[in-house]
Amino acid sequence: MSKEMIMSVMSKDRPGIVADITGAIYQLQGDLADLNQSVLCDYLTMILVATFADSVTPEDVAAAFSHIQSETRLEVVVKEMASPLGAKAKNVEEAYILTVQGPNKSGLVYRISLFCYQHGINILDLATTLDGDQYTMILQLDCSGVESIDDIRTSLTSCAVEAGLTVVLQHEDIFKATSEITLF
C-alpha cells in the first residue's frame, strides 16, 4: 500500500535547494508525481505531490526536510492527501486568459479576484509584474460556469474603467494558436 502526500516549502532561494528537497523525498523512497515551483524576490516556494510507502508519515517527511541548509528557516507543510491522485485531473474547456494593465495602486488584485468570485469564475493561475509604475496581471480563468462571456466582458470593462485599468479577456485557444507550433 502507498499514500500520497502534498508538501509545501518556502525558503530563501539558493543554488541546489531543489536538489536537496527532491533528494530528501528520494531518500524516503518517495515517488514524485507533480511539482510546481516559483521564485519571487529571491524567495523560493514549491508545492510537491509524491507517493510514499504506508510506513512513512508526514512527520518523517518534515524531519527529512529540516536537515536542509537554508539562510532562512525552511517553512514546511506536509499533509496526507484525502483523495487519490487520479481524481485531480480536471480538463478545463472554457479557459480564458485575462490581462489587466494599469498604474500601480493597492487593491488591484483584490478588485479583480473579487470580480471573478462574484461572477462564478475560478482563478487557475495568476502572475503579476510591476514595471516602473505599470502593473500587469495575467490570470488564467475557468469560465465554465459563465453563461454569457459577452456579459462578463461588458461588466469587466466597466469595472476596469472605474479602476483606471485596461483589461482584455480572450479564450486561451487564441494564445495557444499564436504562441505554439501545434494547434490541434
Partner: peptide, 16 residues
Amino acid sequence: MLRSDHILATVEMIQK
C-alpha cells in the same frame, strides 16, 4: 501556463 511575454504580444495584436 503560457509565457507572459507571448500573452502580452497577442493582447497587443488584438487590442491595439
